[in-house]
Amino acid sequence: MIRFNSLSKVWPDGTQAVSNVSLVIPRGQFCVVLGPSGAGKSTLLRAVNGLMKPTEGSVSIDGVQLTTSSERALRQRVAMIHQHFNLTNRMSVAGNVLSGLLPVVSTARALLGWFRTEHRAKACELLKGVGLSPAHLQRRAGDLSGGQQQRVGIARAFMLDPEVVLADEPVASLDPKISRDILTLVRDAARERGTTVLCSLHQIDLAREFGDRIVGMRDGQVVFDGTPAEFTDERVRALYHGAQWDDKPAQVAEITDTVYTHPAIEPVLA
């Protein structure tokens, strides 16, 4: 269970990234965070593993509050999937997946690259689970396609059997089909293990399809919190366009010339 207690973050330049957010995400829930760019989605996610230090309020996981002293231990229970995959490109797939174990592996073993048999077996199984074969183990991560790289990222995230997975726009740079595949992988892996997923997205259809719950953020505040069924088109518009939105009927231009005439649009920048 993740609990945000009236969390606020003001960047040094005065930008209010998150203001007074209180949320409770029960264990095992797939919670999607939606909202326009700059709404504070990433900041909220990063508060969970301490990559972002809140100015006010706090985050706790299963009742343990995230502080400087508990951060190291808590981080091992929170995995992260990144928008740009964040793999070490010049390292092998095997190295990248195994690096998900680094917090629990002794420094000597890590530096020598000697991982236990059960760890290597687990890396293989997870790779198989995300649809990559053992033949990929020795490939360089940077040589794989975007979708394959994100699969490696998912395998790395699940190496430590995390209680929480933070997915920061995990499919923002992937095509629609691969995006669905990737999110299916994350959802299934999480359900199998009872993992809580906090996932920020930009695709509304994917959010409705995969989310058990949708949290809408705007200007650092939670403006919607409910099930996908409650997240109607009206609410989507309200979330992304706010008060500026007004519906205009489509105008059809009469075809009179070989040159396309654009329908008249009122200048926005007057």
Partner: peptide
Amino acid sequence: KPQEALEAIGAG
């Protein structure tokens, strides 16, 4: 980017 990923799980 890879450093951030490893830092996020507390790799040291």
